[in-house]
Design a protein around this nucleic acid. Sequence first.
DNA 1: CCGTATCCATTCCGATACTG
DNA 2: CAGTATCGGAATGGATACGG
Lengths: 148, 148
Amino acid sequence: MVKRICHGATNCPVARSLDAIGDWWSLLIIRDAFRGRRRFGAFQKSTGAAKNILTTRLRGLVDYGVMEMVPASDGSAYQEYVLTEKGLDLFPVVIALWQWGEKHFFEPGETPPVLRDRRRKKPIPELAVLAADGRRLRHTGTTLMPQF
Amino acid sequence: MVKRICHGATNCPVARSLDAIGDWWSLLIIRDAFRGRRRFGAFQKSTGAAKNILTTRLRGLVDYGVMEMVPASDGSAYQEYVLTEKGLDLFPVVIALWQWGEKHFFEPGETPPVLRDRRRKKPIPELAVLAADGRRLRHTGTTLMPQF
DNA sequence: CCGTATCCATTCCGATACTG
DNA sequence: CAGTATCGGAATGGATACGG
């Protein structure tokens, strides 16, 4: 998005997704939007992005329909940035990244922030790719039709 | 990885993941590794990356333990690049990106390549974030402990 | 507080050329 | 085929300054 026009009209869903959100800053913004951040300044603090960078990324996300601007909830004259339905659909992406990082990038001594089920307060089990009949799939269990 | 040292030791699992794979090219390489690509030239063709870019990205992925180099399976003098266990754990990430792109970036007329269960030949249902007791969670159903 | 605009050093990208 | 080296143009990132 911000950078790459990709190679024209690629046929691959992953590449198209990455065009919109395949960027360090954009993903961090989305992560924080899921954590309830809405304001420019809040994103700035929580992502650590410079203001101009934040501006371009937010604009890109809005252009791609991932976020939208709404009048500030506190009555101030500003806008807030909230995830659209399309943006909310990124929840599994964020969770998948979260769990992968949690599993592979924390030393035994470190304690990563844990994602919990709000109701039962239990940690969330690892995301699994399931077939229609509920069987758990590994990548060898999937196939592409047609190839691209 | 390739670019960003991140802001030191961030505590967020998502940020740590992105440090390793939060890059357009790296993710495309990983996507293709899941599709069975192993050779330098194969990645070059399927990702469209320039050779020098591909070199740095592959090296980065190896450094992060996502891929490893193994002797070529066909007896040639070269190496092949294969996903490690850590890399294979990215399967949900790739599937999540795949499904999001499939859902939101294809016009009614276009037909994206469809991901199917190899055994039953049925399309794979959307990834869902499930609680320990099997309830489907939306982002509002999750909480972070402790915050970061 | 919310952005936009500008400047500059750094990095990245892509093409090409070159080696085994 | 599998890389490494290099080069110029472009984009990025960070700081700062400025205006609503």
